[in-house]
C-alpha cells in the first residue's frame, strides 16, 4: 500500500502522457472495485494507479448518429438507470440490474468490467450482441477494436499498456425481445456461474427475422454464437426448436471448454437457461 502512487490527471491528454511515460508500471483505475481486491490480495503490484474515473472524455451515454456511445467510465448504476440504454440496448441495461450489489454498481464502470477480462463479467454478453467496439486512445490517436479482442484469456488483457478505453460504440437496436439472464448461487450479490444475452424480432408471420445471442461465464472469453443465430433466424419459434438450439449451444460450448467435472452442470444448464431466456419468443 505504501509503495503505490496515485495520480488523477485532469484531461485525457494528461492521462495518456502519464501512461506513455510510465508504461508498464501503471494500472488504470476507475471504480476500483476489481483493482482494490487485487491490491489487497497482493496479486497486483504497480507503481502507479492512474484514476480515469473523472475524465470527461470517458463519461456519458448517448446516441451519436447511428451509433450508441457508452463512456468507459459510465457506472453500472448509470447503465441501470439509463433510459437511452433501456430503449436501444435493453439487454445491457438488464445486465446491470443484478450486477454485484448497489454499492458496487455505484462506482464500478463498464470500462473496468471489460478491461478486467473476467470471463464472468456481466456486461460482456450484452456488449457482444450489440457488436460493441471499444474506442482506444493513445498518444498516437484513436482506434477501435471489437470487445471480443480485448481479452486474450481469463483475466488477461490483450491491450497495449499505453492505451485507455474511452468508450464503447454499440449498434443500437430497438427490438421486441431482449434479455440478459444469469445463474448465480444466490439471488443477489452472485458471480455469474453462467450468463447470456439475446435480442430478437419477429416478422408479421411470426418468424424470427433478427436474432443475436452471446454466452458469458462459460468459455475463457464471452462469445457470440453465430451457429444458433443462423439456426433460429427465419424460423417460427417453438419450444422444440429452441430446445434444439440450446442443445447445439451447449455442444459448441463444451467443445471449447472440454468435458471437465463442472461441465456436467454447464452442459444442461446452458440448454436450460437458453430455453428459459428465449421462451418469450414462443
Amino acid at each position: 500500500m505504501m509503495n503505490t502512487g496515485y495520480v488523477r490527471p485532469r484531461t485525457l491528454e494528461d492521462a495518456l502522457a502519464f501512461l506513455a511515460e510510465n508504461s508498464g508500471k501503471t494500472r488504470i483505475v476507475a471504480g476500483g472495485t476489481d483493482v482494490m481486491v487485487d491490491l489487497r490480495a497482493g496479486t497486483l503490484k504497480t507503481d502507479y494507479l492512474l484514476d480515469v474515473s473523472r475524465l470527461q472524455a470517458l463519461r456519458g451515454i448517448e446516441i451519436i448518429g447511428n451509433d450508441l456511445s457508452v463512456g468507459a467510465a459510465a457506472t453500472l448504476s448509470e447503465i441501470y438507470n439509463s433510459a437511452i440504454l433501456e430503449a436501444h440496448a435493453p439487454a445491457l441495461q438488464k445486465s446491470a440490474v443484478n450486477f454485484a450489489s448497489k454499492q458496487i454498481r455505484n462506482v464500478a464502470t463498464i470500462g473496468g468490467n471489460v478491461a478486467h477480462c473476467s470471463p464472468c463479467g456481466d456486461t460482456l454478453p450484452a456488449l457482444a450482441i450489440h457488436e460493441a467496439r471499444a474506442v482506444l486512445s493513445s498518444p498516437a490517436g484513436e482506434r477501435q477494436v471489437p470487445i471480443e479482442a480485448i481479452a486474450s484469456g481469463p483475466y488477461m488483457c490483450a491491450l497495449p499498456q499505453n492505451e485507455i478505453i474511452t468508450r464503447f460504440i454499440l449498434k443500437p437496436a430497438t427490438v421486441a425481445f431482449a434479455d440478459f439472464q444469469k445463474i448465480g448461487r444466490r439471488k443477489e450479490l452472485a458471480v455469474a456461474r453462467m450468463s447470456m444475452a439475446y435480442m430478437a424480432d419477429k416478422d408479421a408471420e411470426g418468424r424470427i427475422c433478427f436474432f443475436r445471442f452471446a454466452l458469458g461465464a462459460c468459455t475463457p472469453t464471452p462469445q457470440r454464437n453465430h451457429r444458433i443465430e443462423a439456426m433460429l433466424t427465419g424460423q417460427i419459434p417453438d419450444a422444440a426448436r429452441i430446445w434444439e438450439a440450446g442443445r447445439v449451444l451447449a455442444e459448441d460450448t463444451i467443445a471449447v471448454t472440454g468435458r471437465r467435472a463442472s461441465a456436467v452442470y454447464k452442459e444442461s444448464a446452458i440448454q436450460g437457461l437458453f430455453m428459459r431466456m428465449v421462451y418469450p419468443l414462443v
Binding site: 448461487r185 444442461s268 444448464a269
Partner: peptide, 17 residues
Amino acid sequence: NLERVLAASISSGHFGP
C-alpha cells in the same frame, strides 16, 4: 445446490421440451 437440483430435475424427467 444448482448442480444437485438440476441433476434431480433431469433424473425425474422434468428437464426438457
